[in-house]
Design a protein around this nucleic acid. Sequence first.
DNA 1: AGTTTTGTTAACCAAATGGTTAAACTTAAT
DNA 2: ATTAAGTTTAACCATTTGGTTAACAAAACT
Lengths: 203, 203
Amino acid sequence: MSDLNTEEKILEAAREVFIAKGLDGARMQDIADKAGINKALLHYYFRSKEMLFQKIFLEKGRELVQVLEQVVGTNLSVREILAMLIDLESDKLDQEPLMPLFVISEINRNPAKLLQVPEIQACRQCLKKLALQIDLEKEQGKIRKELQFQDVIMDVMSLMHFPRIGKNLFVEMLYDRDKVDFAKEVTRRREHIKFVILRSLEP
Amino acid sequence: MSDLNTEEKILEAAREVFIAKGLDGARMQDIADKAGINKALLHYYFRSKEMLFQKIFLEKGRELVQVLEQVVGTNLSVREILAMLIDLESDKLDQEPLMPLFVISEINRNPAKLLQVPEIQACRQCLKKLALQIDLEKEQGKIRKELQFQDVIMDVMSLMHFPRIGKNLFVEMLYDRDKVDFAKEVTRRREHIKFVILRSLEP
DNA sequence: AGTTTTGTTAACCAAATGGTTAAACTTAAT
DNA sequence: ATTAAGTTTAACCATTTGGTTAACAAAACT
């Protein structure tokens, strides 16, 4: 942390605190402490809590749809796209598993924020392409006719994100709290998710 | 609201405010206003914000695992149990789609809270029964051998909860914001989820 | 009817919190 | 060396917020 310039130190601390506590729970003093600087510097660099928060929220909002956008942009088959999506998204989530919970929580507190992430509209466009590709493969008999592309996307996102954001609950309910290595379980689930998703495509 | 006694009015208002804003974002004054009473009455009935919150959190924590516990307690086949779980849980979530987001967010802010919901331990026991039933049906060749019971549970919960808590994001990304009836989409998805889950069991 | 208990309110309080200010320190240009 | 600009800090301020108090009202009890 100490080898970063002040602005980056603040941003890194803000990421941690906002993601862990949310906008309401985050304290400017905590961010300053974690960054190892005086609280007034936060305002010197970012004017207000709201503006600092906005920086982080937009950044993480983008990240949330980035992989999806990236992977749909390729010219692969639907099955290849989905498998790639699962792998890349998993890699990213392993770094910051609670990031989607942060973004979704904040969107629910104030849905208008969502519209300030233009990448979501861009992603929308990309997804239309995927919808076409799915229609095509339906015609070719490769994908079951009843499948809606919205469902596939929601399925993949759900299966990847929800176990991570609900980690504590699932560890307590489904595993032996002291013995389980949940990170390993999540890694193992990659193949399971691919299996479930790809099977759901079969005609 | 006005036909309830004061204590129930407070609890109902607290449910709404805590679920919408979380512990940190909730204001005692907002709860009092929504209940139509003086703020001091909140403390008269529940001593502190923390204690009022605890009441709601425990109640909702219980509700989150209640259906699972109830349905696993029956003597049905695994497929019947899962189909029933999806139907009952959907009915409940239609009433309060953001409740799981509330519980999970608060658990992440303070994981120790989780241990104060004894129903989760009870649920744990019930799930062992389901695990045995799954093993049995694996022996009988009804379920694919590689399937782990933890995965089925996480799959069902994920597919049901995540689209609801991410509603705003999904509507923006996948649908025509102005035209879509997301409630209808969620209802339609019931059958889709059953399909995906039941297919994932097939040997 | 009178008295005690329970319920309810307005006014108030102390702590926390986001934000400001003015001075001090650092760096680089002149 | 002097100045000017940018950076950093301690002290301070105003507001919000959870919580308290004391007086008042309404039941419940005698």
